Amino acid sequence: MRREGQGLTDDLAVDEAYDHFGTTWDFYFEVFARNSINNAGMSLDGVVHFGEGFDNAFWDGAQMVFGDGSGLRFTRLTRSLSVCAHELSHGVVQFDGPLIYQGESGALNEHIADALGAMVDQWSKKQSAEEADWLIGSEILAPGVTGKALRSMKAPGTAFDDDVLGRDQQPAHMDDFVRTARDHGGVHINSGIPNKAFYEISIALGGFSWERAGRILYTTLGNPQLRPTSTFRQFARLNHRVAGQLYGPAGRESAAVEAGWKAVGIQV
């Protein structure tokens, strides 16, 4: 329907996806000097109008897929930059991690995609960590749904409480870690814990989240010591070590990372 450099189409979903792909690509190139999702110039391909009333968007390992929503839970998934950037960032995790999509490592996979998705959204709006709402998917909830987004990194567990969607189950502290066999061991639920930690780190450091907090997170993802089965504590310790390597072990950044993880019940 639309290739790089071509003009607008008569399909809003196509044009929204095209714009979000461009913004996400620009973010990775300008902020992290990354050449596309795989850092080797991979083309960004996407399919829209997937299925019928499909309430989801996903990265399938090679391209993006967007549903139009059922109108009961979600609307057109291409409406949200944070959702698109989140899903494309699963590709970044795929090429730089990977983190096995199960249990705590799977929740870290979701967390990193959320954090990067939020950064892309904030970067596009030139918002500081303090100014941002830290919501993922605020644009896609269907009319009548009681909620504000799919997830809140600032306040996990508060994104929605609705008869159709149910209640947001995300915990914000290890004391409330959810043990379940569903959702690959709760990857979309327990990601609230590292999400909250990243929010706290970003607020403590101030300024733009993609600068120091984001660089520490991105560098942690690409660190050779990251294991496919990393737990929250292992990731937090590596996150803290990377902060020290980038900015000095006695620096403000290291202290912020330590405090951020401590706030969610994890000692580094």
Rank of each mutant, 00 (worst) to 15 (best):
R233T: 08
F160L: 10
N223Y: 08
L217T: 13
R179D: 09
A181D: 09
E4K: 04
D55A: 08
T219R: 14
F160K: 05
R2E: 00
L108F: 00
P194L: 10
D60N: 13
T220H: 12
Q6N: 01
D176Y: 05
R179K: 02
H49P: 00
G41D: 08
N35Y: 13
L205D: 07
G206C: 10
Y199D: 15
A85W: 11
D114H: 14
I216G: 11
L81Y: 06
Q225H: 01
M1Q: 03
Q63E: 06
W59V: 05
G61D: 06
I266W: 04
A132W: 13
G248Y: 01
H111N: 15
V264Y: 12
Q102W: 09
G7A: 02
F58R: 02
I266H: 01
S70T: 07
G192P: 05
P156F: 14
V31K: 15
A256Y: 07
S254D: 04
V31E: 15
N35W: 14
F235W: 13
H173R: 01
W59A: 07
L108Q: 01
L72E: 13
M64A: 13
G248F: 01
G67Y: 02
A142T: 01
Q122K: 03
A33L: 12
R212F: 00
V31D: 14
K148P: 05
D161Q: 09
A197Y: 11
I100Q: 02
K126C: 02
N195G: 12
L99F: 10
L165Q: 06
V257G: 08
A236M: 10
D175Y: 06
A113F: 15
H240P: 07
M153T: 09
Q225A: 12
F177S: 07
A204Q: 11
L72T: 15
G206R: 06
Y247S: 09
V92H: 13
I136H: 04
G207P: 10
R252I: 01
H86L: 10
D19R: 14
S105A: 12
G61F: 04
T24P: 07
T219N: 14
G144D: 05
S124Q: 14
H188N: 08
L150R: 07
G7H: 01
H90Y: 12
A118R: 12
I112K: 10
W134V: 13
P171K: 04
G5W: 01
E211N: 08
V65A: 05
Y28F: 15
V65M: 04
Y247E: 10
S70A: 05
A33D: 14
G53P: 06
F29V: 14
S70L: 07
S36H: 13
G7F: 03
N109T: 07
S124P: 04
D55V: 02
N35C: 11
A107C: 08
I100F: 03
A155N: 15
G260T: 12
Y247G: 06
S230R: 00
D26R: 13
S105M: 10
I193Y: 05
A113S: 15
V14Q: 00
S230P: 00
S36K: 06
P156C: 15
A250R: 03
G97V: 10
V187L: 02
S128P: 03
T78S: 12
F198M: 14
Y28D: 11
E253R: 08
M42S: 03
G144E: 01
G186N: 06
G260K: 10
